[in-house]
Structures are given as C-alpha cells and as structure tokens.
C-alpha cells in the first residue's frame, strides 16, 4: 500500500494538472490497482469533484468522463443500444461488481496495462482521449505513448457505425486474461486488436474477409505479426495459438451480425 501526505479533491481540471506536475504527486483513479504499489506520495489528486463521472451521448459520439466506473460502462443502456454487448463483455470478467464500482475508465486507460480488457476493446472502436493539456488525440496514439504527467479527462467514442466484437481467454472466470482480442469492421475494413500479449494491446487492419480462406489468412497474419511473450499465465507459443482462435471467433461473430 502506498502512503500519502496530502489529499486534494481538485476544484478544477487545471488545479489537478498543476498539482500533477510534481513527481511525488499522483492522480488516484479507482485506487484498486494503485494500492498495490508501495510508493510514498506527497499529494494524491482526486478528480471526483469535477463531474467527470458521466456518460453523455451526442449525435456523433459518446463522451465518457475519466471517473466513469467500469460498472457504469457495463450497465449503460445508451452504450448498449449502439455497441450491443461489447461494453458488457469488456468488463464482466474483471474481478467482481464491487471492484467495477470502484475502478474507473481513466485509471484503466492511463495505466495502459498490457492485460487491460478496456484498452483492447476501446482500441477496436474509434476513440479519442481528451487530456487536460495536450487536448484530444487518438486512443491508438495514446496507447503507445510513455507515461507522462498530463491528465486524462475524457474519452470520446465515435458513433460512426463501426461494429465490434470482444473475446478474452482466462484461466479462471475473474482472472486477468491470458489473451484478449477485439475485432471491428467499418466500411469493409477489419480492425483486429490483440491484448495481454502480455504487453500492451496492438492494432492491425485488413480488408474484411469474405471467405473462410481469407479469414484463415488473417488469423495467420495476426499470429505472425503480433509479438507474444511468456509469463505466469501462459507461454508465448500458447498465446500465439490463442490469438488465432480468438481472432477467428471475434470475426465470426461480426459476420453473424454482432451489433457490437
């Protein structure tokens, strides 16, 4: 468990940003994973007073505040009406409901953990993150960036008709995944995202496969292109195999007309 000398509930995003420039300060999201580090913080910055806990819908996009919980995304009817079961599938295996009532979207994306279900699925959609200072940039770019001291305030998810499907493989139902895979399609282009490699999720795009052979070819390419590694949960070789299986399953559910 970390220690902290001070706790500040920021009144403005700017205040939060300013505080966060000090090396010994940090933003606390849900706190669920953060508590496992043993750092000694000077000031913890809480964003919960900034109204960043809502899911808003405009004709073009969804805007999710950084403090939206995983459980909110899991149960949100508006997200469901556009993306089907995607947000539910992305969150349902994560520890338990109490955990998901604490853990936040901002914390999940900022951490950019390799095992993140959230990052994998959102990368398959067309998302932008909105940072306090750097402004808006694509989630794909953000996912590759090193950790910095900017603050993730919001996530914009485009409602552009993209359909997505999510698959994950776990040793036990509520464990961290051995491998995650999301697939989405827009205008005949297939996007495949593979996460828990165990490193950060990777995206690839292909023409949407119309034949079984074309799909097999894509799965083979995913297995060849993505670099995999070994850890406690699985070997590199097994992950490579699973990537082929999950990719095919995700694409098949897109073919079967998954709205998500």
């Amino acid at each position: 468990m970390f220690t902290a000398q001070q706790y500040v509930k920021a009144a403005t995003l700017e205040e939060a940003y300013t505080l966060n420039q000090k090396r010994n300060n940090a933003v606390i999201g849900g706190g669920c994973w953060m508590k496992m580090n043993h750092r000694r913080y000077q000031t913890l910055i809480d964003l919960s007073g900034l109204g960043l806990d809502t899911i808003e819908e405009t004709p073009e996009e969804f805007v999710l505040g950084a403090m939206v919980t995983l459980r909110q995304m899991e149960t949100d009817e508006k997200l469901k009406s556009i993306f089907g079961n995607g947000f539910y599938e992305m969150t349902r295996h994560i520890v338990g409901i109490q955990f998901r009532n604490c853990a936040t979207l901002g914390g999940s994306l900022y951490s950019r953990f390799g095992f993140s279900d959230i990052l994998t699925f959102l990368l398959s959609l067309d998302c932008e993150v909105e940072l306090a200072h750097a402004g808006r940039l694509s989630l794909a770019d953000y996912a590759q960036m090193p950790y910095d001291r900017d603050i993730l305030a919001k996530v914009h998810i485009l409602k552009n008709g993209r359909r997505a499907a999510y698959e994950s493989f776990r040793q036990t139902a509520t464990d961290i995944p051995v491998l995650t895979c999301a697939a989405s399609v827009l205008d005949g282009t297939l996007r495949v995202v593979v996460g828990a490699r165990p490193k950060r999720a990777m995206c690839m795009e292909f023409p949407f496969p119309e034949t079984e052979e074309a799909l097999e070819e894509i799965c083979r390419k995913v297995q060849e292109t993505v670099s995999f590694g070994s850890n406690l949960r699985g070997s590199e070789e097994y992950r490579r195999h699973l990537a082929g299986v999950l990719c095919r399953r995700a694409v098949c559910s897109l073919k079967e007309g998954a709205v998500c």
Binding site: M36, Q171, T172, A173, T174, D175, I176, L232
Partner: peptide
C-alpha cells in the same frame, strides 16, 4: 511468484 489472490487463483463461484 504468485503470492496474492491476484496471481494465485482459487476458484470463484463462476469456476
């Protein structure tokens, strides 16, 4: 290595 409930998995009710 697996010295926590995060890494040493015991069955949950879904398992």
């Amino acid at each position: 290595e697996n010295r926590s409930f995060l890494q040493y998995k015991i069955p949950s009710r879904l398992d």
